[in-house]
Design a protein around this nucleic acid. Structure first.
Lengths: 204, 204
DNA sequence: ATTTTTATTGGACAATCGTCCAGATTAAAT
DNA sequence: ATTTAATCTGGACGATTGTCCAATAAAAAT
């Protein structure tokens, strides 16, 4: 009798919690847009509220403070980007195909989602000062490094690669391409992919 | 008669201006310390004033606004770092020596001036959002790329290298090393230099 | 149908921000 | 020595910030 009742309560509580988490993600998704546009340092909660048609109180109702909201935003971003990369790599067979697919995906996302990545670099820099940002940054980078390991496997790479170093190299070029795309002369997807391919061939 | 007088006035004005510029640099140098510690987003003018024993009014007397002060800080940082790198490269002879010298200098600065570089990456990210930061960022990166070209020359590299790409690769590793140094497990100068050497050998 | 819980609003709150200035102090010029 | 200009102080100013809450609306449970 008690077990039934508490079971019901538990299901209810879980459903409620799940709903709340979904709402949080939805809000974070909206907030992401404001952050992408203005950057961490220049985005107030009021900016976020306005740009996503939410009341200021709402934000506080779902999120403890500004930091928690922003961290959730990064998390939402992460899930979208890394799972895309994972699928891309996982569906390619053989060295050439893996390199092509990865280079292509990276180039495409620079062209189409530049402002998202801009925010990523902004928040990653924040993590150098504010330890609250470090766990999520570390988690994302570990995922990216894992994807690189997977890429090596699917590229039939015989010996182990230093995936961390590889990540650092790719990231350097990726960020530089992004910066040129935003602040310099934008290039088309093909040109970006070609350059990225050259880098990937260094160690894949 | 007029030419003498106006000449004197000109000399005077120049001396005054130079003095003011020196004072500005001195203030920027002090401000740098606060920025290094707290980062762009979390450093107020009051933080800067307190940490460098300056009055709030002083900052405004010498600098139009917050942005001008911070830009000057980056400029001060730049002069110190790039000229060190330049001297390092310029005094090395032959491929091995150039690579060793450059790798060593980069590794040393990561250990000894981590918080300065941390600020650099912070402000460079800012430039992705705020165009006011772009000229100074661009200038610094061009200088670094030039240093890389010089390195290629002094390493007796026959064919031209893609210095921009080289910069992107080195920067990726340098940043990653810095991040690990600050947020992860710090390594000694030797270990950092070894890793950096491997990267430099890729294209020097 | 009624009660209880959850969701949402709009605004108040104190703290902090960048900016600015009146006046004191010091240095330079005459 | 006197005047003029430059330097510096401390605090005031309005705007903006993150946080929080009383009141209302909506939803869920009884």
């Amino acid at each position: 009798m008690n077990s039934e009742a508490s079971g019901k309560l538990q299901v209810r509580a879980e459903r409620k919690n799940r709903k709340r988490q979904e709402k949080k993600d939805q809000i974070a998704g909206s907030a992401l847009k404001a952050l992408q546009e203005l950057g961490y340092a220049n985005t107030s909660l009021r900016d976020i509220a306005e740009k996503s048609s939410l009341s200021l109180g709402m934000l506080h109702y779902y999120f403890e403070d500004r930091t928690e909201l922003i961290l959730r935003c990064v998390s939402v971003y992460k899930t979208a980007f890394t799972s895309l990369l994972y699928e891309t790599v996982n569906h390619a067979h053989g060295r050439e195909a893996v390199i092509d697919a990865l280079a292509g995906a990276l180039a495409t996302t620079i062209v189409e989602e530049a402002s998202t990545h801009r925010l990523w670099y902004d928040l990653r820099s924040q993590a150098l000062f504010d330890s609250a940002f470090r766990p999520v940054v570390e988690e994302i980078e570990e995922t990216l490094i894992d994807i690189l390991k997977l890429a090596a496997t699917r590229a039939d790479k015989a010996d182990e690669i230093d995936a961390s170093l590889g990540y650092a190299l790719i990231d350097g070029v990726f960020r530089y391409q992004l910066q040129n795309q935003i602040t310099g002369t934008p290039r088309d997807q093909k040109a970006l992919a070609m350059e990225m391919r050259a880098v990937l061939e260094l160690f894949l």
